[in-house]
Simulated assay, not measured.
Amino acid sequence: MQESITNDFSFFDNFDDAIIKLDFLKVKNSNKTAKSLGFFEGNEILDVFTSNKIDEITRWIISNESFKIEDKFYFFQLTDERFVRIRYFQSYLFIKDLTEKVKVKEAKVNFTTSISHELFTPLSALKGNLYFLRENISDKFTLEVLNQMEKSVRRMERIIRQLKIISMLELGMYEPKNDIIDVEKLINEVLDEFSEKIESKKLKFSVEFKIDEVKFDSFMLYTIIKNIVSNAIKYSYEESTIYIIVDKESITVKDNGIGIKKEDIKKVTERFYRSKNAIKMAPGSGLGLSIVKHICNILGCKLDIKSDYLIGTEVKIYY
Score class of each variant (00 low, 15 high):
125 A>R: 13
237 Y>R: 06
309 Y>Q: 10
308 D>I: 09
18 A>D: 08
273 Y>A: 01
300 G>T: 06
96 K>Q: 14
73 F>Y: 15
92 Y>E: 05
163 L>A: 12
13 D>G: 09
297 N>S: 11
54 I>S: 11
95 I>L: 10
132 F>S: 04
71 D>G: 04
228 I>N: 01
14 N>L: 14
208 E>V: 14
221 L>A: 09
26 K>F: 15
30 S>P: 07
194 F>K: 11
87 R>A: 08
250 S>W: 05
159 I>L: 05
33 T>L: 06
189 E>N: 11
130 L>Y: 04
208 E>S: 14
123 L>G: 14
59 R>D: 13
299 L>A: 11
271 R>I: 05
5 I>K: 11
197 K>P: 04
176 P>Y: 02
54 I>Q: 14
185 K>N: 13
261 K>S: 10
30 S>H: 10
98 L>W: 00
18 A>S: 12
22 L>V: 09
138 S>P: 00
120 F>P: 01
30 S>K: 07
294 H>T: 10
129 N>K: 11
240 S>A: 03
66 S>M: 10
45 I>E: 01
139 D>P: 03
317 I>P: 00
84 V>H: 03
144 E>V: 01
177 K>E: 12
187 I>P: 03
51 S>D: 08
300 G>N: 05
139 D>F: 12
245 I>D: 11
136 N>Q: 03
29 N>H: 12
119 L>P: 01
222 Y>D: 04
56 E>W: 15
181 I>H: 01
212 D>Q: 02
192 D>G: 07
